[in-house]
């Protein structure tokens, strides 16, 4: 019996559960709000594998650890979730692997944040280390804006928002690329297009098919490997020169935009991959 850990049943979970049912894969949906585990005895039910679709990074990391500690194989692993859910740790893994990424500077206090921003230069982009869907991203065009954003983040009085992850603003062509990696294969990619500098489908970007050219495939596979591999969505952007940069690797991938235009059934391919890694 496969456990499918969920928070909400979004379009992605519905497609995945439909695919599991269609293929008669025995599974049980486990709502993360119901999870209680005594550490000495482990998870109350023994599963043949765990598919983690929890939406909260914090809840996802701990749940993966709890199931792994009980001897379960969790997809994706707690290690991968920890790296991918934190942009600083992701960037460190990408840089360590020698992959092209936007220039990135980190300060761990607001006191040093202005220096971090000015090391990158204007315009710069400040992103929360943990967060998604393009929320709380700031494009900083000058010192006035930098001082304002730093003061506002400081006023949030949150340790997480006192850490500054600053990147150069890349002159991308009004789009980015999302490539879906399942194990050692890139199965699909889409352009996410928007006139806004944030090209996230959660912020209204539209999708269109993107050809799997060898450079894209190579970079997506190397990015996935750099964070530990698994079932991942690698986000990339293009400089105006055509150079590809890896920006993020997502561990609980959303694929509603991709599913709308891809000529493959992503949910079906994900279930294929699950069966391959968990049951064979």
């Amino acid at each position: 019996m496969l456990a499918v850990l969920t928070t909400r049943v979004r379009l992605e979970e519905r497609l995945l559960l439909d695919a599991l049912e269609r293929r008669a894969v025995p599974h049980e949906v486990v709502d993360d709000r119901s999870l209680v585990v005594e550490l000495q005895s482990g998870t109350p039910t023994r599963y043949t594998g765990v598919f983690n679709r929890i939406m909260s990074h914090t809840r996802s990391v701990y749940s993966a650890h709890l199931f792994e500690a009980s001897g379960h194989r969790v997809v994706n692993s707690s290690h991968v979730i920890e790296l991918c859910g934190d942009k600083i740790l992701t960037s460190l893994a990408l840089v360590r692997a020698g992959l092209p990424t936007p220039r990135t500077v980190v300060s761990v206090t607001p006191d040093a944040a202005l220096r971090a921003v000015e090391t990158v230069g204007y315009p710069a982009v400040v992103k929360p280390a943990v967060g998604s869907w393009g929320r709380l991203l700031s494009k900083i065009n000058d010192r006035d804006a930098a001082e304002t954003v730093i003061e506002h983040k400081q006023a949030m009085r949150s340790p997480a928002h006192s850490v500054f992850y600053v990147q150069e603003l890349v002159d991308k062509p009004a789009r980015d690329i999302r490539a879906i990696v399942l194990g050692d294969r890139v199965v699909a990619a889409v352009y996410r297009r928007s006139e806004h500098w944030i090209t996230n489908t959660a912020r209204g970007a539209t999708t269109e098919p993107c050809a799997l050219d060898p450079d894209l495939v190579d970079l997506a596979l190397r990015a996935a490997k750099a964070v530990g591999g698994g079932m991942l969505a690698v986000d990339l952007i293009e400089r105006s020169t055509g150079e590809l940069l890896v920006t993020e690797v997502n561990h609980t991938m959303e694929f509603h935009g991709l599913a709308a235009v891809a000529d493959v059934d992503i949910a079906d391919l994900i279930v294929d991959h699950l069966e391959e890694v968990l049951f064979r």
């Binding site: 939406m55 909260s56 990074h57 859910g85 967060g131 869907w133 997502n250």
Partner: peptide
Amino acid sequence: LAPEIEEDFGE
């Protein structure tokens, strides 16, 4: 009523 989206929700 649906629970609020939390700060660390995402993908």
